[in-house]
Design a protein around this nucleic acid. Structure first.
Length: 480
RNA sequence: GCGGUUGUGGCGAAGCGGUUUAACGCACCUGACUGUGACUCAGGCACGCGUGGGUUCGAUCCCCACUAGCCGCCCCA
């Protein structure tokens, strides 16, 4: 019998959990910098919590939720997204009465949707989200986007941008939707099958249709801009002004409509340039009516969510994790059975002194052990044979420089610490050297001109400060 | 939910009805090399070809169903 993981789920093996940890640590840390605190809500809620907030007719509610009846005959649902639970908690604990507003929380939790799996789309995915409840100012919106910009940049993404749209307030949006339906009604026959469904469920999406968008009557469809109040426009302008000031890359997309009914005013999505097919690597907007919808006061909110898996996919595509260190420092190698226990003690000694250490339990051949040293990327090989044991020592070999030395066990920890410090300093020195190559074409270090010196006119390096050649020409393959 | 496509060892990948004891490459293990990792050489590594049926004297190869991955649509993180 083969057991397989459920469709659309994945196992995160150590190689991946490391990436997840690095990424989520950074997200958490920046969230904290911006005044957010972590919140955790249950993985399932009463079905109502989600069906009310996401919209009865939304795809998420009608066909994507994991719904089940518990033993007490209650209709429950695995959370399909993070916002509803957070707002429910906010209302339930009457935090509007005791907490200062905006109430800013972040979460990093799994969410579940019964969808057909594809790359970057899973039935269980991990959502990172930010919610600012009771945030009414356009400055709050701008702040959120700047925070996201900062987060993604810090993670190492470079070619991402925001798509923005303004939906107007609830009243004007409703009015617009009504007008839109009225306008498309006589053209229903000409609309594609999908658009028929959209007409009923989410008419705004018709405007986004790739099949019908070139038809004549599309051009005269009512424009959302004509329905949005001056106030909404002014707020939206404030937001984009901030983005300009901070040079956040964005485009306006009047077709941008979010799938959840609760959005109003600002909506946005984040994409990677050239990788739009991969889907958004984050999205958010305002949900001004949601708190009230769940029985709380009329408090406007703005929030954002991203899928950790998609984010990591994007980081992988950008080679952010290529140089991942395993963190292993020492690999203890017993060379013969007779020293096994002595070697074991050395390994334990290192571990008790917080030096990540691996140990060859099988006492394999030297060749096999050295292979493991390389595979596990240990910084030092620690060889232990009879000679070492009799001298209460070990032979420690730096796996980078290949230098080796006999060291007494009592000095081993200090020796390793010193060596690590030296290696770190050297690495920092080199890092400051890289990237300072003056020619733009060779910005990446592999083809850096310091390696294959260049003498062409195109690559004058003389007068630039910080050039790695110190004023010398290099001779790259470019012809003079 | 709809359409398409694929599924051979840890990975990549040949084979497309019977000389297949399932090629080859990578990885891995052992030894030549009983204390220094390369290279080389010699071995080893699929009772099995996603699962279950069927056709056939015979099926990895044909048919059906199921299942899973991937791609497109819908939608979405």
């Amino acid at each position: 019998m083969d057991y397989k993981l459920p469709r659309g789920t994945e196992d995160f093996l150590p190689e991946v959990t490391t990436k997840r940890e690095i990424t989520s640590n950074l997200l958490r840390s920046i969230a904290t910098d911006f005044g957010y605190h972590e919140i955790e809500t249950p993985m399932f809620e009463n079905l109502e919590v989600f069906s009310r907030t996401s919209g009865e007719s939304s795809d998420i509610v009608t066909k994507e939720m994991y719904v089940f009846k518990d033993r007490g005959d209650r209709m429950m649902a695995l959370r399909p997204e993070g916002t509803a639970g957070v707002v429910r908690a906010f209302v339930e604990h009457k935090l509007y009465a005791t907490e200062e507003l905006p109430y800013k929380v972040y979460y990093l939790q799994p969410a579940f949707r019964y969808e057909r799996p594809q790359k970057g789309r899973y039935r269980q995915h991990t959502q990172f989200g930010l919610e600012a409840i009771g945030a009414s100012l356009p400055e709050n919106d701008a702040e959120l986007i700047l925070q996201i910009f900062h987060m993604y940049s810090s993670l190492g993404l470079q070619n991402f941008y925001f798509k923005l749209n303004c939906l107007g307030d609830d009243a004007s949006r409703k009015k617009y939707v009504a007008e839109l339906k009225k306008y498309f009604e006589p053209h229903l026959d000409e609309l594609c099958e999908d658009c028929h469904a959209r007409y009923e469920k989410n008419p705004l999406r018709i405007l986004d249709c790739k099949v019908d968008c070139n038809k004549d009557f599309f051009k005269n469809a009512p424009k959302i801009g004509d329905f949005i109040s001056e106030e909404s426009k002014a707020k939206f302008q404030t937001i984009t002004d901030y983005l300009e000031e901070y040079q956040v890359p964005y485009v306006l997309d009047p077709g941008l409509v979010r799938g959840l009914d609760y959005y109003s005013e600002l909506v946005f999505e984040i994409y990677e340039k050239g990788h739009e097919d991969n889907g958004a690597i984050g999205a958010g907007g305002r949900y001004n009516s949601l708190v009230k919808e769940l029985g709380g006061p009329d408090l406007p909110c703005v929030g954002f969510a991203t899928g950790l898996e998609r984010l990591i996919q994007a980081l992988d595509d950008n080679h952010i994790f290529d140089q991942l260190d395993t963190g292993l420092i020492a690999y203890v190698m017993p060379l013969e059975k007779s020293v096994f226990q002595y070697a074991f003690n050395v390994a334990m000694h290192l571990r008790f002194n917080e030096i990540p250490t691996e140990f060859d339990y099988a006492c394999r051949s030297l060749k096999a052990q050295f292979k493991s040293v390389d595979k596990k990327k240990a910084k030092f090989a620690i060889l232990i044979g009879n000679t070492e044991m009799l001298a209460s020592s070990v032979t420690i070999k730096n796996n980078e420089t290949k230098e080796q030395k006999l060291i007494r066990v009592e000095d081993l920890v200090n020796f390793i610490m010193d060596e690590l410090l030296k290696m770190q300093e050297a690495a920092e020195k080199e890092a400051s050297h890289e990237g300072s190559c003056c020619c733009e074409e060779h910005a990446d270090k592999d083809s850096c001109c310091c390696q294959d010196k260049c003498a062409c006119d195109e690559h004058e390096h003389k007068e630039k400060d910080g050039c790695c050649h110190n004023g010398e020409h290099c001779e790259c393959k470019h012809e003079k």
